[in-house]
């Protein structure tokens, strides 16, 4: 199982065919260099140019980055992303965790299985279908939410959810409510199921209440899962741009503008590719630093608690 004997064993044998090994890795690295590393490096270098598609590009030093510092619309997108991230690690964890706790408290394993499948089932739908169905829920005319509000006598609350700058961003965040069919639910569930029943039984024998068990056993044991989900939340936050692009295109009044949408607008609508490359590179560096930071922090913590 461990890696060391594998390597030790392998060391003796394959010296002769080493060129073959590198040859075997050529297809992978050819792909990765051409379509992953080269674009990233090229984007970084082109961010110092006045990069136009047709005309010749001129070197302009830090001008693009200077322009970025004063770009209010760009920095506003980070406010939006912060709000989404905040919701992503609070309310979007709370309900799934609650559901997992209830699910593992069920004694009938058949009912448990059926409910688990039903709760996870929405994950089987394509992302874009979910997004458009929620677009229809928020539809001001025949949408599900407004129709429901009108029928239960709360018609005054009905509004153009995605068309009003005040409600648009929150409407996007509430897509998929109650967020049970999600990665956090799946991760919490597998996490608690892997703990094993002995520890729960021991707690019950010692007279721990369900609430005590939750705070003293379940939550501490899920520490690793929380860190993992946090890393994913940071990386996946960019994915939120898909929702905004499909439903609002960043509007109304830039209320749902996200970094990726701003980058694409600057390039494809404004034609300012050099500036767009500068924004891409900044975003790239920010996410990279953030994930390295979270990675290092979680690794340090993991070394501290030996129990995991």
């Amino acid at each position: 199982m461990t890696a060391s004997p594998v390597v030790a064993k392998a060391k003796k044998r394959p010296r002769k065919i080493k060129p073959m090994l590198y040859l075997g890795l050529v297809p992978l690295f050819a792909m990765l260099f051409l379509f992953s590393y080269y674009p990233a490096i090229n984007g970084l270098s082109k961010s110092f140019f006045d990069w136009k598609f047709i005309a010749k590009s001129d070197f302009i030093g830090w001008d693009n980055y200077q322009k970025m510092l004063g770009d209010k619309a760009w920095w506003e997108t980070f406010q939006h992303i912060s709000l989404v991230l905040l919701a992503g690690v609070t309310i979007m964890w709370l309900l799934p965790l609650l559901a997992v706790e209830m699910l593992i408290s069920l004694r009938n394993s058949r009912i448990q299985y059926i409910l688990r499948t039903a709760l996870l089932f929405p994950l089987a739908f394509p992302v874009i279908v979910t997004i458009y169905m929620w677009g229809f829920i928020y539809n001001p005319n025949q949408g599900i939410l407004n129709t429901l509000l009108k029928q239960i006598g709360l018609g005054s609350l009905a509004q153009n959810w995605l068309g009003d700058p005040k409600t648009a961003l929150w409407s996007l965040i509430f897509i998929n409510f109650p967020w049970i069919a999600s990665l956090p639910f799946f991760v919490f569930l597998t996490g608690l199921q892997n703990i094993g029943t002995e520890i729960f039984e021991a707690a019950a024998l010692d007279g721990a209440s369900r609430l005590q068990r939750f705070f003293l056993i379940d939550l501490p044991l899920l520490g690793r899962q929380f860190r993992l989900l946090f890393i994913l939340a940071v990386i996946n936050i960019l994915q939120f741009g898909v929702t905004a692009q499909a439903l609002t295109e960043g509007g109304p009044d830039n209320a749902t503008m996200f970094p990726i949408l701003r980058i694409l607008n600057v390039a494809f609508r404004g034609g300012d590719w050099g500036y767009s490359a500068a924004l891409s590179s900044t975003l790239f560096i920010i996410t990279f630093l953030a994930s390295v930071f979270v990675f290092l922090v979680s690794r340090g913590e993991r070394q501290n608690d030996k129990s995991l």
Binding site: S36, Y38, G43, I235, I260, L264, S280, F284
Partner: peptide, 13 residues
């Protein structure tokens, strides 16, 4: 660790 979205523009070019 690198979101593919960040390299979208240069990849397009």
């Amino acid at each position: 660790m690198v979101p593919s979205i960040a390299a979208l523009i240069p990849l397009f070019v």
